[in-house]
Design a binder for these strands. Structure first.
Length: 266
DNA sequence: CCTCTATGGCGAA
DNA sequence: TCGCCCTAGAGGC
Protein backbone atom coordinates (compact mmCIF):
# COMPACT_ATOMS: atom_id res chain seq x y z
CA UNK A 1 0.00 0.00 0.00
CA UNK A 2 2.46 2.54 -1.18
CA UNK A 3 2.91 6.13 -2.10
CA UNK A 4 5.47 6.95 -4.76
CA UNK A 5 8.54 6.65 -2.58
CA UNK A 6 7.83 2.95 -1.95
CA UNK A 7 7.46 2.22 -5.66
CA UNK A 8 10.79 3.92 -6.39
CA UNK A 9 12.40 1.78 -3.68
CA UNK A 10 10.92 -1.34 -5.20
CA UNK A 11 12.20 -0.40 -8.65
CA UNK A 12 15.70 -0.09 -7.23
CA UNK A 13 15.34 -3.36 -5.34
CA UNK A 14 14.15 -5.29 -8.39
CA UNK A 15 16.94 -3.82 -10.53
CA UNK A 16 19.50 -4.74 -7.87
CA UNK A 17 18.22 -8.30 -7.41
CA UNK A 18 17.31 -9.17 -11.01
CA UNK A 19 18.94 -6.63 -13.33
CA UNK A 20 20.94 -8.08 -16.26
CA UNK A 21 19.92 -11.62 -15.31
CA UNK A 22 17.90 -14.30 -17.04
CA UNK A 23 14.68 -14.47 -15.08
CA UNK A 24 12.00 -17.11 -14.87
CA UNK A 25 8.59 -15.41 -14.82
CA UNK A 26 5.36 -17.19 -13.93
CA UNK A 27 1.95 -16.70 -12.37
CA UNK A 28 0.96 -19.37 -9.82
CA UNK A 29 -2.47 -17.75 -9.59
CA UNK A 30 -2.86 -18.06 -13.36
CA UNK A 31 -4.21 -14.63 -14.21
CA UNK A 32 -0.87 -13.50 -15.64
CA UNK A 33 0.25 -16.79 -17.17
CA UNK A 34 -0.14 -15.89 -20.85
CA UNK A 35 1.78 -12.65 -20.36
CA UNK A 36 4.46 -14.26 -18.21
CA UNK A 37 5.14 -16.70 -21.04
CA UNK A 38 6.13 -13.74 -23.25
CA UNK A 39 9.02 -12.66 -21.01
CA UNK A 40 10.09 -15.73 -19.07
CA UNK A 41 13.66 -16.71 -19.86
CA UNK A 42 14.49 -13.23 -21.14
CA UNK A 43 16.99 -10.88 -19.51
CA UNK A 44 15.46 -8.42 -17.07
CA UNK A 45 17.15 -5.14 -17.97
CA UNK A 46 15.96 -2.58 -15.45
CA UNK A 47 12.95 -1.63 -13.32
CA UNK A 48 11.87 2.00 -13.20
CA UNK A 49 9.16 4.02 -11.46
CA UNK A 50 7.07 7.03 -12.39
CA UNK A 51 4.69 8.13 -9.67
CA UNK A 52 3.07 4.98 -8.32
CA UNK A 53 3.64 3.03 -11.54
CA UNK A 54 6.36 0.41 -11.83
CA UNK A 55 7.83 -0.80 -15.13
CA UNK A 56 9.99 -3.91 -15.33
CA UNK A 57 11.91 -3.94 -18.60
CA UNK A 58 13.08 -7.03 -20.52
CA UNK A 59 15.61 -7.48 -23.30
CA UNK A 60 12.90 -8.41 -25.83
CA UNK A 61 11.37 -4.89 -25.69
CA UNK A 62 8.49 -5.98 -23.47
CA UNK A 63 7.72 -4.49 -20.06
CA UNK A 64 5.63 -5.57 -17.13
CA UNK A 65 3.56 -2.68 -15.84
CA UNK A 66 2.57 -2.94 -12.17
CA UNK A 67 0.35 -0.69 -10.07
CA UNK A 68 -0.14 -1.87 -6.51
CA UNK A 69 -3.32 0.06 -5.74
CA UNK A 70 -4.47 -0.22 -2.15
CA UNK A 71 -3.69 -3.89 -1.53
CA UNK A 72 -0.80 -4.83 -3.73
CA UNK A 73 2.41 -6.11 -2.18
CA UNK A 74 5.86 -7.33 -3.22
CA UNK A 75 7.69 -9.92 -1.17
CA UNK A 76 11.32 -10.89 -1.72
CA UNK A 77 12.89 -14.21 -0.71
CA UNK A 78 16.34 -15.74 -1.00
CA UNK A 79 14.79 -19.11 -1.88
CA UNK A 80 11.68 -20.08 -3.81
CA UNK A 81 8.89 -20.79 -1.30
CA UNK A 82 5.94 -22.96 -2.26
CA UNK A 83 3.21 -20.57 -3.41
CA UNK A 84 0.94 -19.50 -0.56
CA UNK A 85 -2.28 -17.68 -1.39
CA UNK A 86 -2.86 -15.90 -4.68
CA UNK A 87 0.41 -14.90 -6.31
CA UNK A 88 -0.16 -12.94 -9.51
CA UNK A 89 3.46 -12.80 -10.60
CA UNK A 90 6.79 -14.30 -9.63
CA UNK A 91 10.29 -13.35 -10.74
CA UNK A 92 12.72 -16.17 -10.08
CA UNK A 93 16.49 -16.63 -10.34
CA UNK A 94 18.68 -19.20 -8.61
CA UNK A 95 19.28 -16.85 -5.71
CA UNK A 96 16.12 -14.75 -5.44
CA UNK A 97 12.35 -14.88 -5.77
CA UNK A 98 9.99 -11.91 -5.91
CA UNK A 99 6.26 -12.46 -5.35
CA UNK A 100 3.53 -10.00 -6.30
CA UNK A 101 0.12 -10.22 -4.64
CA UNK A 102 -3.06 -8.20 -5.06
CA UNK A 103 -1.96 -5.55 -7.57
CA UNK A 104 -4.44 -3.14 -9.07
CA UNK A 105 -2.72 -3.59 -12.44
CA UNK A 106 -0.24 -6.12 -13.81
CA UNK A 107 0.07 -6.21 -17.58
CA UNK A 108 2.52 -6.67 -20.43
CA UNK A 109 3.24 -3.73 -22.67
CA UNK A 110 5.64 -2.84 -25.44
CA UNK A 111 8.08 0.02 -24.98
CA UNK A 112 5.91 2.10 -27.31
CA UNK A 113 2.87 1.48 -25.13
CA UNK A 114 4.91 2.26 -22.04
CA UNK A 115 5.98 5.56 -23.58
CA UNK A 116 2.35 6.55 -24.14
CA UNK A 117 1.46 5.64 -20.59
CA UNK A 118 4.32 7.74 -19.22
CA UNK A 119 2.94 10.82 -20.96
CA UNK A 120 -0.32 10.39 -19.04
CA UNK A 121 1.19 10.02 -15.59
CA UNK A 122 2.43 13.53 -14.88
CA UNK A 123 5.50 15.01 -13.20
CA UNK A 124 7.03 13.10 -10.30
CA UNK A 125 8.83 15.09 -7.59
CA UNK A 126 11.17 12.15 -6.95
CA UNK A 127 12.14 11.90 -10.61
CA UNK A 128 12.86 15.64 -10.68
CA UNK A 129 10.34 16.33 -13.45
CA UNK A 130 9.41 19.95 -14.15
CA UNK A 131 6.20 21.04 -12.36
CA UNK A 132 5.61 23.88 -14.85
CA UNK A 133 2.37 22.53 -16.35
CA UNK A 134 1.06 21.40 -12.98
CA UNK A 135 1.79 24.85 -11.58
CA UNK A 136 -0.22 26.53 -14.33
CA UNK A 137 -3.17 24.17 -13.90
CA UNK A 138 -3.24 24.42 -10.12
CA UNK A 139 -3.08 28.22 -10.13
CA UNK A 140 -6.02 28.36 -12.58
CA UNK A 141 -8.18 25.72 -10.91
CA UNK A 142 -11.30 26.21 -8.83
CA UNK A 143 -10.77 22.76 -7.29
CA UNK A 144 -9.55 22.47 -3.69
CA UNK A 145 -5.77 22.15 -3.36
CA UNK A 146 -6.35 19.07 -1.19
CA UNK A 147 -8.03 17.38 -4.15
CA UNK A 148 -5.49 18.62 -6.70
CA UNK A 149 -2.60 17.15 -4.71
CA UNK A 150 -4.11 13.68 -5.18
CA UNK A 151 -4.37 14.11 -8.96
CA UNK A 152 -1.62 11.89 -10.41
CA UNK A 153 -1.53 13.95 -13.62
CA UNK A 154 -0.42 16.91 -11.49
CA UNK A 155 1.55 15.33 -8.61
CA UNK A 156 2.62 11.80 -9.57
CA UNK A 157 3.40 9.65 -6.56
CA UNK A 158 1.77 11.87 -3.96
CA UNK A 159 -0.76 9.96 -1.87
CA UNK A 160 -2.99 10.61 1.10
CA UNK A 161 -0.14 10.93 3.61
CA UNK A 162 2.13 13.27 1.65
CA UNK A 163 -0.94 15.33 0.70
CA UNK A 164 -1.96 15.90 4.32
CA UNK A 165 1.59 16.49 5.53
CA UNK A 166 2.75 18.92 2.87
CA UNK A 167 -0.38 21.01 3.37
CA UNK A 168 0.26 21.11 7.09
CA UNK A 169 3.95 21.94 6.74
CA UNK A 170 2.99 25.00 4.69
CA UNK A 171 -0.07 25.85 6.80
CA UNK A 172 -2.33 25.65 3.75
CA UNK A 173 -6.04 24.97 4.18
CA UNK A 174 -6.94 21.83 2.17
CA UNK A 175 -10.17 23.38 0.91
CA UNK A 176 -8.51 26.45 -0.61
CA UNK A 177 -9.16 26.57 -4.38
CA UNK A 178 -5.96 26.20 -6.41
CA UNK A 179 -6.39 29.60 -8.01
CA UNK A 180 -6.39 31.26 -4.59
CA UNK A 181 -3.07 29.68 -3.67
CA UNK A 182 -0.17 32.14 -3.68
CA UNK A 183 2.21 30.94 -6.45
CA UNK A 184 5.12 31.02 -4.01
CA UNK A 185 3.28 28.41 -1.96
CA UNK A 186 3.02 26.08 -4.95
CA UNK A 187 6.77 26.38 -5.47
CA UNK A 188 7.52 25.84 -1.79
CA UNK A 189 5.25 22.79 -1.56
CA UNK A 190 6.72 21.21 -4.69
CA UNK A 191 10.26 21.73 -3.41
CA UNK A 192 9.22 20.30 -0.06
CA UNK A 193 7.61 17.24 -1.69
CA UNK A 194 10.91 16.59 -3.45
CA UNK A 195 12.75 16.66 -0.14
CA UNK A 196 10.21 14.60 1.79
CA UNK A 197 9.66 11.97 -0.90
CA UNK A 198 13.35 11.54 -1.73
CA UNK A 199 13.95 11.06 1.98
CA UNK A 200 11.17 8.47 1.88
CA UNK A 201 12.98 6.60 -0.91
CA UNK A 202 16.11 6.46 1.26
CA UNK A 203 14.46 5.49 4.53
CA UNK A 204 11.35 3.57 3.46
CA UNK A 205 9.13 5.59 5.79
CA UNK A 206 7.32 8.90 5.80
CA UNK A 207 8.75 11.36 8.33
CA UNK A 208 7.55 14.93 8.13
CA UNK A 209 7.84 16.35 11.65
CA UNK A 210 10.50 19.02 12.04
CA UNK A 211 12.91 18.46 14.97
CA UNK A 212 11.60 21.49 16.90
CA UNK A 213 8.07 20.00 16.86
CA UNK A 214 8.95 16.48 17.95
CA UNK A 215 6.94 15.59 21.03
CA UNK A 216 9.36 15.54 23.97
CA UNK A 217 7.52 12.79 25.79
CA UNK A 218 8.37 10.22 23.17
CA UNK A 219 11.75 8.60 22.78
CA UNK A 220 12.97 8.82 19.24
CA UNK A 221 13.38 5.07 18.91
CA UNK A 222 9.85 4.43 20.13
CA UNK A 223 8.20 6.76 17.63
CA UNK A 224 6.57 5.45 14.48
CA UNK A 225 2.93 5.50 13.51
CA UNK A 226 1.24 2.64 11.73
CA UNK A 227 2.41 3.84 8.32
CA UNK A 228 6.01 3.56 9.51
CA UNK A 229 7.00 7.15 10.23
CA UNK A 230 6.18 10.22 12.26
CA UNK A 231 3.70 12.74 10.93
CA UNK A 232 1.85 15.92 11.96
CA UNK A 233 -1.74 15.15 10.96
CA UNK A 234 -2.22 11.92 8.98
CA UNK A 235 -4.46 9.61 11.04
CA UNK A 236 -4.01 11.83 14.09
CA UNK A 237 -7.64 13.04 14.18
CA UNK A 238 -8.84 13.69 17.71
CA UNK A 239 -5.29 14.12 18.98
CA UNK A 240 -3.38 17.31 19.73
CA UNK A 241 -1.55 19.26 17.07
CA UNK A 242 2.21 19.16 17.78
CA UNK A 243 2.42 22.88 16.97
CA UNK A 244 -0.64 24.55 18.52
CA UNK A 245 -2.33 21.87 20.62
CA UNK A 246 -5.67 22.05 18.77
CA UNK A 247 -7.54 18.88 17.93
CA UNK A 248 -6.65 17.46 14.51
CA UNK A 249 -9.73 17.15 12.30
CA UNK A 250 -10.75 14.54 9.75
CA UNK A 251 -13.23 14.75 6.88
CA UNK A 252 -14.05 12.88 3.69
CA UNK A 253 -12.87 14.56 0.51
CA UNK A 254 -13.57 12.75 -2.77
CA UNK A 255 -13.97 9.49 -0.93
CA UNK A 256 -10.62 9.72 0.90
CA UNK A 257 -9.91 10.66 4.49
CA UNK A 258 -8.42 14.12 4.83
CA UNK A 259 -6.59 15.23 7.99
CA UNK A 260 -5.69 18.78 8.97
CA UNK A 261 -5.30 21.21 11.87
CA UNK A 262 -8.10 23.79 11.71
CA UNK A 263 -6.03 26.29 13.67
CA UNK A 264 -2.69 26.06 11.89
CA UNK A 265 -4.28 25.66 8.43
CA UNK A 266 -6.80 28.46 8.25
C1' DC B 1 -13.89 -16.09 14.96
C1' DC B 2 -15.79 -11.72 12.94
C1' DT B 3 -15.85 -6.80 11.06
C1' DC B 4 -13.62 -2.77 9.79
C1' DT B 5 -10.21 -0.26 7.52
C1' DA B 6 -6.41 1.23 4.21
C1' DT B 7 -0.62 4.98 1.74
C1' DG B 8 -5.34 3.72 -5.10
C1' DG B 9 -7.79 4.09 -9.20
C1' DC B 10 -10.97 2.44 -12.74
C1' DG B 11 -15.40 2.35 -15.02
C1' DA B 12 -20.42 2.49 -14.80
C1' DA B 13 -24.32 5.34 -13.73
C1' DT C 1 -20.74 9.21 -6.50
C1' DC C 2 -20.72 4.41 -6.15
C1' DG C 3 -19.18 -0.28 -6.66
C1' DC C 4 -15.48 -2.99 -7.41
C1' DC C 5 -10.83 -4.83 -7.49
C1' DC C 6 -8.65 -7.98 -3.80
C1' DT C 7 -5.12 -8.35 0.61
C1' DA C 8 -3.78 -8.12 5.39
C1' DG C 9 -3.47 -6.01 9.75
C1' DA C 10 -6.02 -4.18 13.72
C1' DG C 11 -9.43 -4.54 16.91
C1' DG C 12 -13.78 -6.40 18.89
C1' DC C 13 -16.21 -10.49 20.80
Amino acid sequence: MPEGHVVHRQAKEITKLFGQQLVHVDSPQGRFSDSAALVTGATLTKATAQGKHLFIGFSNDLNIHVHLGLYGKWAFHSQTPDPVGLIRLRLITESTTAELRGPNACAIMTSAEKKIMLTKIGPDPIAGNSPKKSREKVLRSSTAIGTLLMDQRLFAGVGNIYRAEVLFRHRVNPFLPGRELDPSYFDAMWADLRILMKRGVRTGRIDTVRPEHEPRSMKRAARADRHGGEVYVYRRDGRECFVCGSEIHMAQLQGRNLFWCPTCQK
